[in-house]
């Protein structure tokens, strides 16, 4: 038959260079407490949280096709669970972060059972309703301050680390570690057997269905895993803030609008997108936030323009142009001419 044999290659030259660059960057960031000031640390930690949230949303929407506008449900859930565990049950904050993941995953199952009954864009609004329900329920919890929220008691804050500086370092490293773990988990997932199925879903849902892949099952697994990660990040975010209230914890602006903006600008359906997007988002925020609501308006407009005229985002443009790939994700089909290539099993 054909004179061409194919083999699947994971890594490309650019991705090998990419890995070296990534490791170097990570080392520099891990040492930030020794070269950066408080302000920088806070900003970086916040950026890590957004990279993680956006990467998780990207997995959900960009790969599994589950466009949720209700992920604030899990951010807030993680935050509230942490506050409850720490204040009411006396659990150590770091342990509380670890607990937030699995508990959110369990909660995500019945939530999915309901929202998965809605298709496409209606699913999106359905997830929003769930987030609203979470917000309203949170404001009924009187031990956590009801509608006006609560701060972490000083004694518990001190229990984390004796000095403020030590606590800030701790939270910084925690944020970096959590984000690296989330990214690594996503990469591992996408490279697994499920990852191929996910790409099939993304590229053509009908084909994926007719190929008999259990599309709904994979989507459910992704949804639950994303809830797991999102909730842990949420717990960490509010541990850093030291204060929580229903409106901040379940804010659609902070935990969904910004996250979507980041992902769309950076490049949806690509692992690098959320990282690029977070950098752009924070650059815009640092320069434009004086404009107040006008700044959000500009952000909305930029998102629309990118969605319509560069739907693969900034990273998509770069990757297409130069064939770059920072992380070895897409399996490349390498075609090499060969004589008498037989069929492979």
């Amino acid at each position: 038959m054909s004179q061409i044999a194919s083999k699947v290659e994971h890594s490309t030259r650019s991705s090998r260079i990419g890995i070296v660059l990534i490791l170097a960057t990570l080392a520099v960031l891990a040492l930030a407490p020794f070269w950066g000031d408080r302000q920088t640390l806070r900003l970086l930690a916040e950026m890590y949280a957004f990279v993680a949230l956006a990467s998780l949303w990207n997995l959900l929407a960009g790969y599994a096709g589950l466009v949720s506008v209700g992920q604030q449900a899990f951010v807030g859930f993680g935050g509230y669970l942490l506050f409850w565990l720490v204040i009411v049950a006396g659990v150590h904050p770091l342990v509380a972060i670890l607990i937030a993941g699995p508990v959110a995953a369990i909660i995500a199952v019945p939530v999915a059972a309901l929202t998965f009954r809605l298709r496409g864009a209606y699913f999106a609004i359905g997830t929003w309703v769930v987030a609203e329900v979470f917000r309203l329920l949170a404001s009924q919890i009187s031990v956590l301050g009801g509608g006006s929220g609560i701060s972490l008691p000083a004694a518990m804050v001190i229990s984390m680390a004796p000095t403020r500086q030590a606590r800030e370092f701790e939270i910084y490293w925690l944020a970096l570690a959590l984000t690296v773990i989330v990214l690594a988990a996503i990469v591992a997932l996408l490279r697994s057997r499920h990852g191929l199925a996910l790409t099939a879903i993304r590229d053509n849902e009908l084909a994926a269905q007719s190929n008999g892949i259990g599309v709904m099952r994979i989507k459910l697994i992704i949804y639950v895993l994303v809830a797991f990660g999102t909730s842990m990040v949420g717990a960490l975010i509010f541990l850093q803030k030291l204060r929580i209230s229903p409106d901040t914890a379940f804010s659609v602006n902070d935990w969904t609008a910004f996250v979507i903006f980041i992902t769309v600008i950076g490049g949806i359906g690509r692992i690098e997108g959320p990282i690029i997007g977070t950098i752009i988002f924070f650059a815009m925020r640092q320069t434009l936030s004086d404009l107040g609501s006008l700044y959000l308006l500009i952000m909305g407009a930029v998102a629309i323009v990118v969605m319509l005229w560069a739907p693969k985002g900034l990273w998509g443009l770069i990757a297409e142009r130069y064939g770059w790939q920072a992380l070895p994700l897409q399996r490349r089909l390498v075609l090499t001419p060969k004589e008498n290539a037989g069929r492979k099993p």
């Binding site: 864009a121 949806i268 959000l296 998102a303 629309i304």
Partner: peptide, 12 residues
């Protein structure tokens, strides 16, 4: 995605 995200941007 495009209609969803564009109307979301419009909302903002």
């Amino acid at each position: 995605l495009p209609p969803l995200l564009v109307t979301f941007g419009l909302s903002i």
